[in-house]
Design a protein around this nucleic acid. Structure first.
Lengths: 387, 387
DNA sequence: TTTATTAGTTAAGCAGCCTAACACATAAGG
DNA sequence: CCTTATGTGTTAGGCTGCTTAACTAATAAA
């Protein structure tokens, strides 16, 4: 440890105490021997670390676990002093909120359904966020400890410090909402959040490299490489709606045309245009189309297959650039098992070997991901390594 | 340090000694005060570290540097005991080789021009590698110390352990060449090597995120994100010749078609097809075409501009996937200043803000990059942290 | 020759881990 | 019920790798 720096305001824990706390955050309640063994710490060091963490209430004993033989082992978990985080998914149809401890014990959850689906983030969404956060803050219990971080998932690019904040529209979420003072605010793109959630709890659990591709009203990707979320210089990594399209000899690509072409609106328009007058009314939305296809409707199946090909070509381009080895499909269309085989076939025909899976988390992915990111932001603060 | 592990065969240096050695490898000769200051080490610790490193000859004093006042400071550099590395670029027209110390003092350099340009890596190239390496080994001086690593840059995908080695053709370089026993061999794709070199010594010096795009006979990309070279599950990251192409409504993409279309051969074929009979003979290669364009030849300029657009669209797709913020162009065509403005314009029209620069290293990039990678492989070995 | 300044060494101490040995708690077996 | 085996937690002591403080060494300028 660097002993030249002045002691931080926070306790300045030893390395082993930090490791123990981190392990309790990540793995949940554990006994002392379990922690010691998994971190390679001796029993005296474990004693010291636990004592150090118990004083400020960062951990607390929650019981004893009896093995087949011998003395029972004390079990610990993250304590009240560690505080809690709040995670908000500021979506276009719902605003959902989770309050939880750093080891993800749910303290409060709220969902607000927006009266009409918003095209993109706006005042209305911001007001709903303000309302839900206020309600959650009002419901705060003393035994939750301090609020350590507030994470907000937004459907815009999120640029880091020094980036062009205005162009990204990321500030719109704050147009009618002021975060509580003194709390770390974590802003992240909703697709990136979903990728984080799939990495930790979903179809990509434990995978260091994969791409999460969301196929719905719009198309987007969250990229995880070397266990790092790839955001890009302008927060635009994964904005695959901007892939060059059309891209062929003699054709001029147009900016954002891929998004336009692959989005549900244009897709449905193509379906409608192709729908014979004598085949009943064309599907009004993708859910209807998928239902028809699922029931064996030949024309619906054909359109779904065509779209799977288009998505497959898109994913193949991504695979060619970063070769993630694994692609998780999510979003309204992407989650459908009807799309999966076509995408799989096309990707592996056009590009290098990549496993293609469907999301395991569905619409919950985003809020779970921003919760994870809020926790990861809070953790170094709590154990006093802000650098 | 983990004291439970048995002492390694290697000296088992202290953390500070390792840091000092690393710093001498990376920054070249320095005085004790310089090193101590930049690493934040006290003078007693510096004394201990230097003493520790001098014993096995890992560092050596090379003189004293006099400041404006006070006692002169001892200057050190990496010593003989640290040994040296050998770097080979197994290219299609040349095999070039560099032997250097870990702090990049050149000990030997060889270039072998292949009798005919090889389409891809083959026996002939492998024999040339064997020959050059043998010559360099024969010329080894005792004061070079031990050979720590042998790096080879190859024009194929390079897959990690567990990957499909056969499909990547990476083993072809060993068809007629057996590396000296007991030496670490580092295999890396040549475009990735060039990216590494641009990162350390070229147009992307000090940049943690950028893409190096090589435009020549073939097209390829080396990707550096968060200061990590992105290789991909199958070593296929950056294989942008496999971007979906053609990619447009109603068209079927074909695997590898982008490479085919963007490569010099097809490009020149298009130029020739369009060349009027009364305009003299069409350019035989891209160098001729570039020369004509450079001299103001309207038709040549038009073709170069068209190709710049195509390359721009390709780069824009990459930017949409990873948003690197910086793209360095290299390769026979990519290095040309005639291409740069067109690429720049197209990329920024289609995608997010990205700076576009030309290579500063040209054809040397590959061998400098593989040298760097060999050094990075050797370093942890030498200071005994193989994990 | 003295003085100021910078470089390097010696001495002493502390943080953070370890091992060894002992005290404590619990299940199983006479 | 008491002993034995086994695993848990604490106490004592030690080692490593750094620190600061104070000293010695070397050099330019006065």
């Amino acid at each position: 440890m660097d002993q030249r720096l002045p002691a931080a305001a926070r306790p300045a824990l030893t390395g082993s105490a930090r490791a123990v706390f981190r392990r309790l955050v990540e793995e949940g309640p554990s006994t002392r021997p379990q922690i010691g063994q998994s971190l390679g710490l001796s029993r005296p060091t474990m004693s010291a670390a636990i004592a150090e963490l118990e004083k400020p209430g960062l951990v607390e004993m929650i019981g004893a676990v009896q093995g087949p033989l011998g003395r029972s082992a004390a079990q610990y978990r993250v304590g009240q002093g560690a505080g809690h985080v709040m995670a908000v998914d500021a979506g276009s149809t719902h605003v959902s909120l989770r309050v939880s401890t750093l080891d993800r014990r749910l303290l409060d959850a709220r969902v607000y359904r927006l009266p009409v689906s918003q095209i993109s983030i706006n005042d209305q969404v911001s007001r709903a966020v303000a309302q839900q956060v206020a309600a959650a803050l009002a419901a705060t219990q003393p035994d939750w400890g301090p609020l350590r971080a507030l994470g907000i998932a937004v459907p815009t690019r999120v640029v880091g410090p020094g980036g062009d904040v205005v162009a990204s529209r990321q500030e719109v979420v704050f147009s009618a909402f002021t975060p509580p003072p003194g709390v770390d605010v974590v802003l992240e793109n909703n697709v990136n959040c979903a990728a984080v959630a799939e990495r930790h709890y979903g179809a990509a659990r434990g995978e260091a490299n994969f791409a999460y591709v969301q196929v719905g009203v719009k198309i987007g990707m969250g990229l995880m490489l070397g266990d790092q979320l790839i955001r890009g210089r302008n927060g635009a990594a994964g904005e695959i709606g901007h892939l060059s399209f059309p891209f062929a000899p003699g054709l001029q690509p147009r900016p954002g045309e891929a998004e336009q072409y692959l989005g549900t609106e244009a897709f449905l328009a193509r379906v409608r245009a192709d729908w014979p007058a004598d085949a009943g009314t064309a599907p009004a939305d993708t859910a209807e189309l998928l239902a028809l296809a699922g029931a064996g409707h030949a024309l619906a199946l054909q359109h779904v297959a065509r779209h799977a090909d288009d998505i497959g070509a898109t994913v193949a381009s991504c695979v060619s650039v970063v070769d993630p080895g694994l692609v998780v499909l999510g979003g309204g269309l992407g989650a459908s098992p009807l799309l999966l085989p076509g995408v799989r076939e096309t990707v592996n025909r056009l590009s290098y070997a990549a496993e293609i899976r469907s999301t395991l988390l569905g619409a919950d992915a985003t809020v779970l991901g921003i919760e994870r990111l809020a926790i990861e932001t809070a953790l170094p603060r709590v154990i006093g390594q802000e650098a």
